[in-house]
């Protein structure tokens, strides 16, 4: 879900836990962060035009991905 959104961005969207960060357009990379439920994550992007995408990812996380917790 996150990856799908991040693939629409013009630049790389990073998702991280403060220590490591992952390319948000890659499901595998996100999963490799090992972030389980309840973790706090940090979203970053290289260009402000992609901020709306960060917002939609944030919304997705806040709403608990609907029922789908794949990512």
């Amino acid at each position: 879900m996150i990856a799908k959104l991040a693939q629409n961005a013009d630049t790389v969207v990073w998702i991280g836990d403060g220590e490591n960060r992952a390319d948000a357009s890659s499901i595998i990379d996100i999963l490799s962060l090992g972030c389980s439920k309840g973790y706090e994550v940090l979203l970053e992007t290289e260009n402000e035009v992609d901020i709306p995408i960060l917002d939609s990812i944030k919304e997705l996380i806040d709403t608990g991905f609907g029922e789908d917790v794949d990512e």
Binding site: A3, K4, D23, S25, S26, I28, D29, S32, D68, D70
Partner: peptide, 16 residues
């Protein structure tokens, strides 16, 4: 469907 659609995205995942 969710699983299958996730797979669809995985095909082109950068890491793979």
């Amino acid at each position: 469907l969710n699983i299958l659609e996730t797979h669809m995205v995985l095909f082109k995942d950068k890491m793979l």
